[in-house]
Design a protein around this nucleic acid. Structure first.
Lengths: 191, 191
DNA sequence: GATTATTATTGAACAATGTTCAATAATTAA
DNA sequence: TTAATTATTGAACATTGTTCAATAATAATC
């Protein structure tokens, strides 16, 4: 078959991203292959390389969508609460909720090594990171400290979920992520 | 060629693990392929499958060696220091040092998804984890709290190094891992 | 409307991965 | 010396990512 032009380039890109997302949700990050995505959208692998430089770029595009959705959730939390500590606890809760409800998308976003992270990705990260740093401002003191604390907070959430999901810290007893995050926050916000 | 028997099965296993380690250190985790390792030790890929169930098992074997080395370092730290907080700060420092000096081995151990983690691996994790939980006992109060705090501490270190190495949290400014860990510890040990 | 130019899509190919396993040849046992 | 054992090979298969000339459907031109 030759030229079909059922969709614009932009439409097709969106279709591929959605199909990729479905694949990851249904079968995990390792199911995100060029052939799987192509088959699901009714095209051949070659077409995907018209839309994306490589498969990592498709992966990054999915992650950007994921981050943007999470950013909306954070925005809602900031609107619903005005106290800093309450905000932070709710954001952490939302993070854990995301990890629990969509572990495959979480893994694709945070536990899958990628070769290329473009500017769009870093922008999406900002939309998730900046509100956390802002919520920390009254607690940390100055902006620089708040941003550093936000990185620590983010890293801890990240690490707790990762070690739980990968089982790389399977010692005798297993503590739910919520318990560990609570323990962290109780001490972290004590100021 | 047929049967050579230059080495015992155990020797050959050790040789393969060492070769794999060298490969990872020199060229990163993605260089750890059956063919690369086989070539380096003067055998064919098939031989590796006589020694290991699959390539992940070789990967795990390397990680066990890495963890055991780190466990020795922790042991030394506990011998050199008796104060809990000093111990913990020095352990964190050693962790950061390991990450900085051997980023490829660190990545293989903590940032590479594996399909199988055997009992030997979890035992090696214990040798690194338990001393941290022990050092935390006077600070956390009871043993359960200490173990939970150890998981938090471990997760935070893990997260900070991972986000730095992968560049998945590249916001405007970059803070060295040491700064972030110090900020974490200052608050975490304030009790 | 016929012809030409453009381009979206294909599909076959290549290299590299993990993995298997019958064949083989060197060692060990009888 | 002969037979049994087994460590090692090497070729094969399936699956990856990726490339790119060929193709066929659309768009442009006359």
């Amino acid at each position: 078959m030759g030229r079909r032009k059922d969709h614009t380039r932009e439409e097709l890109t969106r279709i591929a991203i959605n199909a990729g997302t479905e694949l990851v949700v249904a079968e995990g990050p390792e199911a995100l292959t060029a052939r799987n995505v192509a088959k699901l959208i009714g095209y051949t692998p070659g077409t995907l390389y018209n839309l994306f430089e490589n498969i990592d770029e498709l992966c990054t595009a999915i992650n950007i969508k994921t981050l943007n959705r999470f950013a909306v959730e954070i925005e809602q939390i900031l609107n619903e609460h005005s106290k800093s500590k309450k905000r932070l606890r709710r954001i952490c809760q939302a993070y854990l909720n995301f990890h629990q409800k969509k572990p495959e998308l979480w893994a694709l976003c945070f536990a899958t090594p990628l070769r290329s992270l473009n500017e769009d990705y870093h922008q999406a990260v900002h939309k998730v990171f900046d509100p956390v740093a802002e919520a920390l401002l009254p607690i940390s003191g100055d902006p620089q400290a708040a941003r550093q604390d936000a990185k620590v907070l983010w890293s801890t959430l990240h690490g707790i979920c990762l070690l739980q999901q990968t089982g790389k810290l399977n010692v005798a007893e297993t503590d739910p992520a919520e318990i560990l995050v609570k323990r962290f926050l109780d001490q972290f916000l004590k100021r």
